[in-house]
Design a protein around this nucleic acid. Structure first.
Lengths: 339, 339
DNA sequence: TATAAATAGTTAAGCGTTTTCCTACTGCGT
DNA sequence: ACGCAGTAGGAAAACGCTTAACTATTTATA
């Protein structure tokens, strides 16, 4: 593997000049520059990131921390899209992505890997449940960091999340406009960072705008799995008067709920309308096609990364969470209330 | 951030000694060792990987290259599991994972990132369609590499894949044992590296063991998407005599095929048995639950990584592909042939 | 024409490790 | 008392790059 000396020798200049050419520092004549580039090409030279990282402050690597304490998160295609978004944006700026999937039991090691080795310029943490340590540790260390999702603590916090409030609001409004008045809710885990509260807020607001109030007895919880949706739907569908619609906070639980509805001999959407959340591609397999709220997952990864790079270049900034728009996708699982 | 000098000073030894303690080199007294470790703890010291990478040959980073030319691959939960397996195994050996999702258009850059910067000790490439360049480039460079999937070229090649032959064999045998004799096949793309051929071989073998031969008119192709399964199923179900069973080479297409079957007023499994492939979790949403062949995806990532580390330590080895067992999971989408 | 300013390129120090000699000490057998 | 093997620890070079400081050359300015 050629090093900078080989290039310098071949181009008949000093290593300093080579370095300047490669980092686009001014005061190099066009002629010399070309000669150096020629040598670089000939030798297939690329600077060693290790050596570069030693002198510069930059390593050109960002860490992507994904805690996967709850295993089911890993069935969530959403995550893969976030990863892709991060990778994409990093690439565009010649950055590399170091993956760190910390299981709760060894968060310490994730922390070590990212921080203490000086291997990354910054980190993106995917926020899931409360109580994750890595984030705090990174902050304490002063490492530039962006969260994907909601972050505990007072604003401003550097994070990106989708507009859960609006998503829930639109979902409920859609149902209300279809004439539904008894709307059951299946929420995700209560300790899932922030998102659920936001959605509940959205629900209340939408109901309020129709002069209705939120009925707590129509609220039920699941853990994002199909099974939990199936379970959570039972008490709701057994309530009298029976809800004519369900707003379920992820698509998989929505599918579970629909399965339960069948057991109650309810047809979707004729007897029961169902709105999901996420718009994961796999639900396209299911009949009826699910009306849902689409989250811009790839975009979330992208935005978080771009913002992180900005933070790396100008450390110490704090800004308010970036909220990405969601979209109501009306498909076949919702319809007007039966008269 | 503390460096090795800080530690040396605090422990009142030379940096050489600190280094020795940290790499478990002999000839350091227990007392000194303890003193050094104490200092390390106190200062929260961790050696800089960059500096270490400069002197040692090792960077303790492996690259994970995922070409995502076909976008739909990214809806495949399978991939996420592979990633997880890689990350896991790497962690166990104190290795880090650098992600590189090369789009076809910039494979060159993926190559640069991984190779020429000297940033990784080895690479894992996920093989999908033929014609990917990165792999060849890595080999040419002499970089240790493991493939996940089938790799072009003559054996031995360093790769890990699941037992597609056996999987197809078991699927077909299962159907044959249920009495099916007209079995339609929906294959993945023909140019998808190796796997499809292996499965076709398995199909032939299973048929042969029942004294049957493969009927090419019952073969149809899709591209792994639900839609393509839906499309591919039509000609098959229109064939006379109509097949009583379908073996579909991934779960998503299987779902598509089942949807088409409904249009033909066929009930699964009463009128038509369907076997899928992969056993991705999301199919648990569908009724009937899919009989399928489970691939050990996390394990594939793990094995590939462990093998790569072995290859890094003893370069130049070539071994035969590692074949991981698959498993027939019988659920509700298959049943005895209607009499 | 003399001088200042801008441009072009070089030298050498330094980044934080590891590792190869070295040196020094200890205890043991003679 | 001497020499030697074994054990402990240190000094310093090397890894490949960047960059500050410097010199030399050219161009602009008065």
């Amino acid at each position: 593997m050629a090093n900078i000396y080989d290039v310098a020798r071949l181009a008949q200049v000093s290593t300093a000049t080579v370095s300047k050419v490669l980092s686009n520092t001014p005061y190099v004549s066009a002629k010399t520059k070309e000669r150096v580039l020629e040598a670089v090409r000939e030798l297939h030279y690329a600077p060693s990131l290790a050596a570069r990282g030693l002198t510069r402050t930059r390593t050109y690597v960002v860490g992507l921390v994904i805690p996967y304490d709850p295993d089911f998160l890993f069935n969530d295609p959403y995550l893969l899209e976030v990863i892709r978004g991060v990778e994409n944006a990093a690439n565009d700026s010649d950055y590399n992505v170091l993956l760190s999937m910390a299981h709760k039991s060894d968060q310490r090691s994730a922390y070590t890997r990212l921080l203490r080795t000086g291997y990354v310029d910054g980190a993106i943490t995917v926020e899931t449940f409360e109580g994750d340590q890595v984030g705090y540790l990174l902050d304490e260390f002063g490492m530039p960091r962006m969260s994907i999702g909601y972050r505990a603590g007072q604003k401003p916090v550097n994070s990106v999340h989708s507009d859960d409030f609006r998503g829930a609001f639109e979902a409920i409004r859609h149902l209300l406009e279809l004439g539904h008045r008894q709307i059951g809710i299946i929420s995700g885990p209560a300790n899932f960072m922030g998102a659920m509260e936001e959605r509940l807020r959205g629900i209340r607001e939408a109901l309020g705008s129709f002069g209705l109030t939120f009925d707590r007895t129509l609220l039920s919880f699941g853990d994002f799995t199909v099974e939990s949706g199936y379970e959570a739907a039972r008490p709701l569908l057994a309530t009298q008067p029976r809800p004519t619609a369900l707003f379920v906070m992820n698509d998989q639980m929505a599918i579970g709920a629909i399965r339960r509805a069948r057991e109650f001999d309810l047809t979707v959407p004729a007897d029961l309308s169902v709105v999901g959340f996420d718009d994961v591609a796999v639900t396209m397999l299911y009949e009826p096609l699910l009306t849902t709220i689409r989250q811009p997952s790839v975009e979330m990864g992208r935005v978080a990364t771009r913002q992180l790079l900005e933070l790396i270049n100008n450390p110490g900034q704090q800004f308010d969470p970036i909220v990405l728009p969601v979209e109501l996708i009306v498909r076949g699982s919702t319809g007007p209330v039966a008269s």
